[in-house]
């Protein structure tokens, strides 16, 4: 286990091995997302109360789920970089932040586009919406602190601490709809209960959720590999890789 950790923690080893994953992640994304979009937009039945507007759910819900789990992954990378001073973990945290910020922004904007016709407003300062906005600020804060620190790895520590402390926001987002009176409805899915919708409605959603995870890992890996290339540009192994190519 420690040997495995040691090997994968080296940028060179990671770079050499991780490239093989790219086609699978790209394939998963390009297969599931178009399927989910066509299925959700065209074939899933309309909702008895919301009509066709509920189709926004097929982009909103995956974005909201991914926003929270990508934050957890970014914070985990930050934690590893704090404890083991691993360059790769620092790079992973830095590259996850902008993707997570965009995903959170999409969750907020698609939610607003759903809220306007259904609730009657784009935005309301209820606990769910506000805590999700804070998630966006946390992503932006981690990104800004990390960028300000420059390429040195020690500079990333403040950003990593913020990322880890910001984890507290995740249970608040999750339980906000149960703890307080909010405009946002409670969750339609839970581990213990049946989904509050029939299979022909949640199946395309499942395709989208798996698809956006595939997309996230794909983009994250692409960015991380580019970050490694840029950070390691002076090292022999990366120059040799490219010397043969050019």
């Amino acid at each position: 286990m420690w040997r495995w950790f040691h090997e994968w923690g080296s940028p060179r080893y990671f770079y050499a091995r991780s490239g093989r994953l790219l086609p699978y992640l790209a394939g998963l994304t390009l297969l599931l997302i178009p399927t989910g979009i066509v299925w959700g937009l065209l074939y899933a039945p309309a909702d008895y109360q919301q009509g066709h507007s509920y189709r926004i759910m097929y982009v909103h819900v995956p974005a909201a789920i991914l926003a929270q789990s990508s934050y957890a992954m970014m914070a985990a990378a930050g934690m590893v970089s704090l404890i083991w001073r691993l360059k790769l973990a620092d790079a992973a945290m830095q590259t996850a932040a902008p993707i997570g910020a965009w995903v959170t922004a999409i969750a907020l904007i698609t939610g607003a586009l759903w809220g306007k016709p259904m609730w009657g407003t784009y935005w309301v300062w209820d606990a769910r919406l506000t805590s999700t906005l804070i998630l966006l600020f946390l992503f932006a804060g981690v990104l800004a602190l990390r960028q300000a620190a420059g390429p040195s790895q020690s500079g990333g520590r403040a950003a990593a601490v913020l990322a880890v402390v910001g984890l507290i926001n995740l249970p608040i987002i999750k339980f906000s709809v149960d703890w307080w009176f909010t405009l946002h409805q409670p969750a339609s899915f839970s581990v213990t209960e049946k989904p509050a919708m029939p299979i022909e409605m949640w199946a395309p959603l499942l395709a989208m959720v798996i698809g956006v995870y595939g997309w996230f890992f794909w983009v994250w890996l692409l960015r991380l590999r580019q970050e490694i290339r840029e950070r390691e540009v002076r090292s022999e192994w990366i120059r040799q890789r490219y010397q043969n190519e050019f």
Binding site: P45, A46, G120, A187, S188, P198
Partner: peptide, 28 residues
């Protein structure tokens, strides 16, 4: 001065909602 609608977590195709109503169980 402003009314916002709050929707619940349930989603249903219209036919299912009608069938439920016919069966005596309110849809929402």
């Amino acid at each position: 001065e402003e009314i916002l609608a709050k929707h619940d977590e349930k989603y249903m195709p219209p036919e299912v909602a009608l069938a439920l109503e016919a069966g005596g169980k309110a849809a929402g």
